[in-house]
Design a protein around this nucleic acid. Sequence first.
DNA 1: GTCTATATCGCGATAGAC
DNA 2: GTCTATCGCGATATAGAC
Lengths: 223, 223
Amino acid sequence: MAPSRNTPSLAHDPGTRQSESVIRILEEAETLFAELGFEAVSINAIAERAGISKANVFHHFASKRDLYLAVLHRACERCADHMQSLEVHDGTFPERMRAYSADMLTDMLDKASLHRLMLRELLGEEDGRVAKELAERVFGDKFARLVSILRTGQARADLRSDFDPGMAAMVLIGMNLFFLQSRNVFGHLPDARVAADPKRYSAMLTDILLRGIAVSPASPESE
Amino acid sequence: MAPSRNTPSLAHDPGTRQSESVIRILEEAETLFAELGFEAVSINAIAERAGISKANVFHHFASKRDLYLAVLHRACERCADHMQSLEVHDGTFPERMRAYSADMLTDMLDKASLHRLMLRELLGEEDGRVAKELAERVFGDKFARLVSILRTGQARADLRSDFDPGMAAMVLIGMNLFFLQSRNVFGHLPDARVAADPKRYSAMLTDILLRGIAVSPASPESE
DNA sequence: GTCTATATCGCGATAGAC
DNA sequence: GTCTATCGCGATATAGAC
């Protein structure tokens, strides 16, 4: 049995290798949370589907919410995986950016119901503690990484030096989340049909964003 | 310009003047909905506060949801009121745009809890009928107006001609909504402190957006 | 104690008098 | 336009049987 002591959770420690059980828990939890939402899922149900005991779940994760945050973080991680293509200097920065943004949106749509949970969390409580937790443990490292990439781009003169990289990162992430959030509604508006077409949306978004931040205003393709 | 479409698409708005009762209903409903959310508010409560009977409310609004949509539309209208400063050619387009975006955000924050309801609606059901209703009766006319303004800007060469005005309008609206949605969380991130400062956020947003769509990146066109 | 049938209440919504 | 009275429904409360 070995009931859980004060074992620290490694759920939000990216980079460390995770045990078989942890991965299974995360996968089953993701499926259930995405399908039913946070409240409607019991730890027991997750444990059953993962083929382990409830106590074992609590051994790896301090609480249900802890597990939930780990699941969201993992989803965030998947979207951020493509950042490496932004870091490797292969092709022009605009090209890489377009590809990254498109990949992010694809991942979001691929696990749409899971990312909708993330939007609900963002919209949720005004509780400061919860919000900070969410910021630090779900979005924190990935956002910092994106900002860092943009800063490097500025240092290398791939990008204008006179914009706030944090703001640009928010536009990129925010508008992709906004697609997920509003496509059902805005897709019905004649002037916003792009809101129902991920590929065009992504292309146009990066086009507007890049021409704003690309160092060369006339031709965004040049580097 | 503004080719007038014949469908007012709002159940209670015959054109110009709204009756005293309708306004009172809308005001009290807005307060209650913003405070408690849709489900938690009864028509009776609204009627009482408005000093009329429940049946009278149903005389003016076909259903509770109908009233709700009218309330959201009104909130939308307030944000859109400042559009006239975009239409009147007073100052450069970038200047007017900055002012408009800042005013929109101010209005949103002023009635934050009400606009959070709007975000909840956007995020809500995947139900196609509801989404279409929301698009046409809440966002429809205001969005079309903003797009029309951007198109005019393109025609007058105040703006680049090679971007989709619908997409640009979505960026403007989406990122302002995103501020409301994410400031609690993103404000905690060191690189995104701008997410907690409406004025800076607004300035930086329009800066990025404008340099993307302004025809001349170096100097704003005068007129 | 548990379970279930019944009464009560508040809800959105309607009908019809004035 | 505004009202009173009322509907059907679902949730809740309660009372009785077991």
